[in-house]
């Protein structure tokens, strides 16, 4: 996952549902570490639609 920092309100909702606890919610940024498998769950609930998922075809 990638976060559009212009939209993200740094609420941390995405991190609370991540099954692999990959998301770090800092004061200035929100990002996933290497363990992210792009499952897309976090994107489903982001209240402002800031999460982008890279789909591997």
């Amino acid at each position: 996952m990638k976060v559009d920092t212009n939209i993200c309100i740094r609420c941390g909702a995405c991190a609370s549902v991540c099954p692999v606890n990959a998301i770090e919610v800092a004061d200035a940024y929100v990002r996933a570490d290497k363990s992210c498998n792009n499952c897309g769950i976090c994107a489903k609930l982001c209240p402002v639609g800031a999460v982008m998922i890279e789909r591997k075809l």
Partner: peptide, 10 residues
């Protein structure tokens, strides 16, 4: 403490 989507309001 991981939440399921049915257990969190956005």
């Amino acid at each position: 403490t991981t939440l399921k989507l049915v257990d969190i309001e956005s």
